[in-house]
Design a protein around this nucleic acid. Structure first.
Lengths: 238, 238
DNA sequence: TAGTGGTCTAGACCACTTT
DNA sequence: AAGTGGTCTAGACCACTAG
């Protein structure tokens, strides 16, 4: 119970309260003492307690309402964080050799579903890049990407011959809104060919849509052979 | 540029700084003015600026180091948050009819890989539950779960006849550590039978390991027909 | 060693919502 | 009407680390 002086006080309070929740001393729906009382109990300022409780609420452990007070939240199912590193780093982290291969890079009129996803005219020209990412001598990921050169004119000058568009975009486009979709799909004939697999092979597919200043900038479909890649949630620290 | 008075001041500061990052006024690696200067610029207390910058750093936009100052972070690839609701809520949200079906529920000695994942003796008895979750007349998810009745004795008395173990565990086990793995796999013969699909069909597989007070409580393998289920990241709000 | 962020305090006022 | 959380201030001291 004694406080570790090398630890900020608000973290101490946070930990103590989390222990009470996890041990069951404070069960689901239980009313937590108000900030003023906890401040007195811990012998600290109310703001210190406030920060501890606010962070616990942000993490989903508590629910807070003015006047009604603070209660232990009902549900633990709060989603989870997946980390996705750049594909070359992912391969490197496995101790394997990464290789990039450009398949095609053409300016083309976007097919209707892509154009509508970008909210641009159906006939507009965009940059279409198809490439492969190898891990040793296996194809680790195929990438099929449309880039809105209207939003990012500089992309039109990039050859993407020796490095993939992902890397260039990360280094050159300011922070943005990203949406991900994860699905399991069967490889079609074209995908099977690119991945050097049989058609029907299960693929882990990541669809990533990136926007900047309210405009869609790029849509990428990334396919991995199912047996080569697994998404793992961050270990959680408290 | 004028401040919306209904918005907390620290959020206003946060938004202003985020705009400077997103517009490129502050590029990758650029040095952000120190808290004292920003406090003067915005005409507020340093703590108010501090909170805004701290939250931006927590969200990955800034990197802060004492003495060295605050800089715009280099990389946008910061992972993403997936939300997973309970399977019955997921089906309900689609406007379809949910049905639960228990397949088997037996006390059994865990196979070695499961036992070692739980860190318990190889011969120990655990509860093994297999069930199906239907969406209208299709199997939406199969669930194959091992429960450590040593850690959660009350689970041994649950029949799980009319509701799945997931729901009971959420309602009865205090907050816990959870680890997720997402993979695309081909249906084996047993999975194909349970899902009423052909063997080799692509499945989106979620493996969820839940711990409580440092002990593993339950491991579940959840399989979805690939075409029925897609994981989607939260839309991001700033 | 000086400048930066990190934490903490005591007090204040406000916003919200239950009673 | 009153009690709760949410924000804000002015000031302080400390921890870290680049110069």
């Amino acid at each position: 119970m004694s406080r570790n002086t090398s630890q900020p006080l608000y973290k101490h309070v946070k930990k103590q309260m989390l222990d009470r929740i996890r041990s069951g001393k404070l069960g689901f729906g239980a009313l937590v003492p108000c900030e003023a009382d906890l401040a007195e109990e811990f012998g600290c300022a109310r703001l210190t307690v406030h920060r501890a409780l606010r962070e616990l609420a942000d993490e989903g452990f508590l629910e807070r309402r003015r006047r009604a007070g603070t209660r232990v939240a009902q549900r633990a199912s709060r989603g989870f964080q997946l980390s996705v590193s750049r594909v070359d780093e992912e391969v490197f982290a496995r101790g394997e050799v990464y290789r990039y291969e450009l398949i095609t890079r053409v300016a083309a009129t976007a097919p209707n579903p892509v154009a509508s996803a970008f909210g641009i005219a159906p006939g507009a020209e965009m940059l279409h890049v198809v490439c492969r990412h190898w891990s040793n001598d296996r194809v680790f990921q195929t990438e099929d990407r449309w880039i809105n050169t209207d939003a990012i004119p500089a992309a039109a000058d990039q050859p993407f011959r020796h490095a993939g568009p992902n890397r260039w975009l990360l280094d050159n486009v300011p922070f943005s809104e990203v949406r991900h979709e994860i699905a399991a799909v069967a490889a079609g004939p074209e995908e099977a060919r690119l991945l050097k697999l049989d058609a029907g092979h299960p693929l882990l597919q990541i669809r990533r849509e990136t926007g900047w200043q309210g405009r869609s900038v790029t849509v990428a479909v990334l396919n991995h052979p199912g047996e080569l890649f697994t998404l793992t949630s961050q270990p959680q620290a408290v």
